[in-house]
Amino acid sequence: MEESENILYNNLKEAFMLREDITFFNFGSFGACPKPIFEEYQRFQRELEYEPVQFIVNKGPEYMKESRVRLAEYLTCDSDDLVYVPNPTYAVNIVARSLDLKAGDEVLSTNIEYGACDRTWDFYCAEKGAKYIKQTISLPLTSKEAFLSDFWKGFSDKTRLVFLSQITSATGLILPVKEICEEAKRRGVLVFIDGAHVPGHIPLNLTELNADFYTGACHKWMLTPKGSSFLHVKSEHQKQLDPLVVSWGYKSDFPSQSQFLDYHQFNGTRDFSAYLTIPKAIAFMKWNNWLGEAEDCRILVQKWLPRLCELVGSKPLAPVTDEFIGQMGSIPVECDNPIDLKNILYNEFKIEIPVMVQNGQAYIRFSINVFNTEEDLVRLENALKDLKERKLIF
């Protein structure tokens, strides 16, 4: 897998295949894949179809290993501590199913986590007689210290694992997970960080963070095709993780040096081409000054978030600084029907933007990436004014 020389764009909007007639503010849900990375995806898919057996049995595993090495360099970790998974929810299921929870044990989280992960912990905790504690976080946040104070109020001598997002889904907030990891270690409990929105969005050094378990999506802010994510597990915990799907890697006839990889990397026949595009995505970001571009996007979010909140009569969910706000901003709104509101924004105004509800509060979450402009945000502002005049937002 070699880096292409033709991945430098003067206008990065041209790199994306998004519809011209849609104002796209929902990068946070599934991302969008630039043309060179998508072409790499299709190149691997064609190679798969030219000789399926050789690809899946021989070449594919070598490609996968090379891809993991490149991702590990990007995330600052050991490649043998990474396995690829289709999405972070899959990774959470691996850990939740395998964790040796007993009746009465507790998993401490927050009440602003991603719904699919909440459901996963509810399911496995109920199965094992444990409790999933969704500690209430006071919003808006006033400081990092206030968040930490709220969070640790949920800790008890029964807490066995801390689970929380580094960047939340509905609220779009960046949480102080480094401090959480440090304090959890001091208290002697494991930490699992859901970093679905992190890679390609804000800097991530897994060695420095030192979480026991970490999952992140590559198909969001890291620009790869859909269905490419990873699970990072510290070496001392790997053998306790059972395969979510039992396949040929379990008690393998040809074991590798890593049970972790044998158990979790191959789960039967599937197209894993999306995983193999990660080196191309890293090269694309490097060539196109992604850190600088991300900073410009973050500045745009921070400029417009207070303005849009004021328009609908609400306030930002935290101080509008790099500490809490990245390339996503969530606007608290009052409305009768969030689903209808989302559909109206799309059908009438051609704006693709999520309207989510958490703890009874609706949020319009806008994501900004390199193809978005001030004109896009003016379009959103005008749409919100119209909806407010029609009393669809109040």
Rank of each mutant, 00 (worst) to 15 (best):
S330R: 05
Q302S: 08
T373W: 10
D336H: 07
W304Q: 12
S367A: 12
Q302H: 01
P316E: 04
K350P: 02
P338G: 12
K350S: 13
L317Q: 03
I339F: 11
F371A: 11
F371D: 04
E381A: 00
V312T: 13
E381R: 04
E323F: 11
F349I: 00
S330I: 06
K303F: 13
L384G: 02
V333E: 03
S367N: 10
E323S: 06
Y346E: 11
R365N: 07
E323R: 11
A318R: 04
V301E: 11
R365Y: 02
L308R: 10
C309F: 03
Q327I: 07
L384D: 00
W304Y: 15
D322Y: 08
C309D: 01
V378P: 00
K303L: 14
I351W: 00
E348P: 00
Q361N: 07
N372P: 12
N369I: 05
N372E: 09
G329W: 08
F366Q: 04
M356N: 07
V301F: 14
E310Y: 08
L300N: 08
N343K: 11
L377K: 00
R365Q: 06
T373Q: 09
N372K: 14
K342S: 13
E323M: 08
L341C: 06
N382A: 12
S330V: 06
E334H: 04
N369P: 00
R307A: 12
I368S: 12
E348Q: 10
C335E: 06
E352G: 08
I364N: 09
P354F: 05
L308D: 00
L384M: 07
F324N: 14
N347D: 15
N337Y: 04
R379K: 12
D340W: 01
R307W: 14
E352H: 05
L377A: 02
V378Y: 06
D336F: 08
L300Y: 09
G313E: 07
K315H: 14
Q361C: 07
I364H: 03
I325S: 10
I325Q: 06
G329M: 14
I331M: 01
E352D: 13
S330H: 10
G326R: 01
V355L: 12
